[in-house]
Design a protein around this nucleic acid. Structure first.
Lengths: 192, 192
DNA sequence: CAGTTTATATACCGAACGGTATAATAGGAG
DNA sequence: CTCCTATTATACCGTTCGGTATATAAACTG
């Protein structure tokens, strides 16, 4: 493996296990069997390596989300494909997805949170648009699109957290029925 | 205010805003207008001040949760009172509740997570028991009590997070109807 | 008043922090 | 072979980290 990739991998594992602020640059390069100038050569700074990590992975997620939203169908279908895209990303790299979630819930003035914020906002806005485009089906939402979007993302994230707790070894993958019932439960919450 | 209480207050605000690892002991005592030995006199270590913070606040939550579970009624009533207890804790000290949530989602090998883990586990087990005691009403749960417990806590937490997003100034308090519909939505998820 | 306890400050510790100036090494191109 | 670029290491920078030895001031206790 290239040293650049190796550093990204080691950093991801350490950030996931201990948290961004609790990991030192020294620790990352030691794990990779390299030295600090190598890390600074590729990424420029400690936050730079986190940013690279986020950008790389989000690009993958962005593609599958776009594919999900291009599909034909009602809002239920779109939400299903959206949830599917998240679950797919989760299953491909649990460590990264969990790291992302930890960052999402971390302190607002933290540097690591500021690094992930624009990406989270981007996806949040994408989901808001899904609800706005569905006003024909859902009727007047009284400006609750934002609430729905936060709710939907939260429901999916929470589902994945529970899934992680119940299947730590990642033995079974998330089924279509599970994703379907997740979306249904969320939709019920809207109409009730 | 006593210097001890002042230090706890300042630490809470900083941990909430920046995260435990990103805050230095120096920063805490400067905000309080004191010096390091004073902090070490009262709390012994940096993690000691977080532990004191958690223990103090959890004692309050523990009392209101116990009161909720002592009430007569079916599982829906118990869950309602439980959700009410969480919401009450949240409204009394949003900063602390949000800090708790951030810690809950933080990295598993982080010192701060280890400090809060026993308390989270304690409440988690309490909620598991609520579901176990309701086997008469809910029928055979196929050992899904744990899943329900994680689900319930996650639903409440997520609701409070959204609430925070939509009412950042904390103008209106959470109504009985809101708590009721939250519990109903969760119960629907179980039966579906 | 003398002795003890409680509470606070000054001034310091070694270690780790993020980051860098500089040089050596390696590989390809002319 | 020689130059150039890409990559890596040695050795260091000033700052901040969590934590403490020691002294002092105030408040209680006999």
């Amino acid at each position: 493996m290239e040293n650049r990739t190796l550093l990204l991998q080691c950093a991801k594992e350490l950030f996931y296990a201990k948290g961004y602020d609790a990991v030192g640059v020294q620790e990352i390069v030691e794990k990779a069997g390299l030295t600090k100038p190598t890390l600074y050569y590729y990424f420029g700074s400690k936050i730079g390596i986190l940013r690279t990590l986020i950008e790389t992975k989000f690009e993958e997620l962005r593609i599958s989300v776009q594919k999900a939203l291009d599909s034909e169908g009602d809002i239920r279908i779109h939400l299903y494909h959206l949830a599917e895209a998240y679950c797919y990303c989760f299953e491909r790299d649990r460590e990264f997805y969990m790291l992302m979630m930890a960052l999402f819930y971390s302190a607002r003035e933290n540097e690591a949170y500021k690094a992930i914020r624009p990406y989270v906002t981007e996806f949040y806005e994408t989901v808001v648009k899904v609800f706005e485009n569905a006003s024909g089906e859902l009727g007047n939402m009284n400006g609750r699109q934002r609430q729905f979007a936060v709710g939907f993302i939260g429901t999916v994230n929470h589902y994945l957290l529970v899934h992680c707790e119940l299947d730590p070894e990642q033995k079974e993958e998330i089924s279509r029925e599970q994703i379907n019932s997740l979306v249904n439960q969320f939709m019920y919450g809207i109409f009730s």
